[in-house]
Amino acid sequence: MRITGYRTATTVHDWGRPIGDANGTVGSGKTSVPIVVLTTDSGLEGIGLGSHDGLDVVFPAIEDQDPRAVVALYDRMLSWVFKRGHTGAVFGAIGALDMALWDLKAKAAEQPLWRLLGAHDHVVPAYASGLDSPLADEELVRLHKQFAERGLQAVKLKGGLDVAADLRRLELLSALYREHTGHAPALMLDANESWSRKEAVRHIRRIEEHVDLAWIEEPVRRWDVDGLALVTQSVKAAVATGENLTGLEQFRPLVAANAVDVVQTGSVWGITHFLRVAALAHAFDLPISPVGYDGNPLGHAAAVVPNHLSIEIQDLVTPIGITADQEIVDGHLVLGDSPGLGYTVDEAAIAQLGDAADWGSGAGPHVRPDRAGRRLVGKPAIRWEADE
C-alpha cells in the first residue's frame, strides 16, 4: 500500500451558543474544522483533523510511502522541515497527516485504533469543558446540565477576568453536578495564558479561600518556565499546561523544572506527538490529559497510556458532516469498534455548506488582547482626544 495524494475540506462546528475564553469570543458559535483525507493505491483513505497550512510543504515527505510506517513517517515529516522549523501551523499540518496515517494503519489492520495501539479497554475517563466564558449564569447551568446528565464528575470553567464571577460560577457548577451525580465534582479553572505571575497567584489564592480547585490551567504564558514553577509552588491547585506546545523540546524544560503538575497536549498536534509527550510525562510520574477537539481523536491514544488522567469533552455533538463512533456514558468517553478512528465524513454535505466560520477574528479567543498579563492594577486609562 502506497500514499498517492490528499484532499482537503473544511466543515463547520455549530456549537449552538457563543464560545470563548479570557482572550475573546466567537459570538456566532460557529467555528471552522479543517479535514485532511489521505488517499492510497489500495483504495483505503485516512482521515485527519487539523491545519491545512503547510500541507504542501510536508506532504512530499510521505508521498509514495507505505502509510503503515507511521512513526517513521512522522519523523520524516519533522526532518523535512529541519531548517525552517516545525512549530505553529506546520506542526499542525504534520499532526493532521499523522492522524490520517494512524487512521489508515488501523483500517488496514481492520481494527479500531485503540485496539491496534494495545489498549485493554475502550472506556476513557473524561471531564466536561464548555468553552463557556461568554455565557450568562442561566446559560452556563443549562449547558452543563447536559454534561452532568451524562455522568461527568469533573468540570473545567473558562475564567480569569473577575474573581467574584469565577467564584460564583464555580459554585454554581459544583451545586449542579452534585445534584445530578450525587458527588462533589472536581473543579478546574482555565485562564488561557491571560495572567502575569503575580496576577495568577493572587487570583487563585482568593478562589482557594472558598473553592477546592483540582487544577489551574495555563495561568501564565506557555513558555514561562519560572512563572509556571512559581505558580505551582504558591497555590494548592495543580498547574496544567501544554496544549499549545509543539514538540518534546518545548515540554522538557517545564518537566525538568517541576513547573507542571498535569501535562496536556492539543489534539490538533496529532497522535504520535501525544504518545511521545505521555511517555516523557510518565518518566517523571506526571499524569497526562488531552485537550478536547472535534471528535476527540486522542481518545484512542489516551486509552493506551498508563498515566492518562482524563480527556476534555468540549461538546456533545460533532461538526457538520462528521460522525464519530463514540459516545459519552457514565462520565467516560466510550470508543466504538469501527476500524481506525471511527470517523465518517460526508464530503457532499460539507461541500453544500454556505456558512462562514473561523476561530481567528480580531475579537476571537485565538487573538491575544492588549491588556492580557497587564491587569494587575485594573482597567486601562481612558484615552482623551485632544481639543481642536
Rank of each mutant, 00 (worst) to 15 (best):
T11H: 14
L187V: 06
N296H: 14
P380M: 03
A324Y: 04
A186T: 13
G242D: 11
K379P: 06
L286D: 00
S310F: 03
S133H: 09
P369W: 07
L116S: 09
D162K: 07
V90D: 02
R221G: 14
A108Y: 06
G92V: 00
A165L: 09
R142N: 15
V124N: 05
A349C: 07
A108H: 11
V268G: 01
E218R: 01
M99P: 01
A363T: 12
W359D: 00
S289G: 03
T272Y: 00
R7D: 09
L131H: 13
V377E: 10
V36H: 05
D166G: 04
A184T: 15
P253D: 13
A61M: 09
V163L: 02
R2N: 15
L104S: 07
D226W: 09
T318D: 10
H144E: 10
D337Y: 00
A278C: 07
S310K: 03
F274E: 02
G24T: 12
I288S: 07
D166L: 04
E45F: 06
Y177R: 11
H366Y: 10
L173N: 11
D41C: 08
A348F: 05
A381P: 00
S196H: 08
L117P: 02
T4S: 15
D337C: 02
V81A: 02
G85I: 04
W80P: 00
P253C: 11
I382R: 13
V334A: 02
A165H: 08
H86A: 15
A128E: 07
L228C: 13
E171F: 01
V220N: 10
F59I: 05
R368I: 09
R371H: 09
L140S: 11
R197P: 10
Y343C: 08
V304M: 09
V345L: 12
T39V: 02
D166F: 03
E249T: 15
E312L: 04
T4R: 14
G88M: 07
M188G: 03
G270A: 07
N192A: 15
S51K: 05
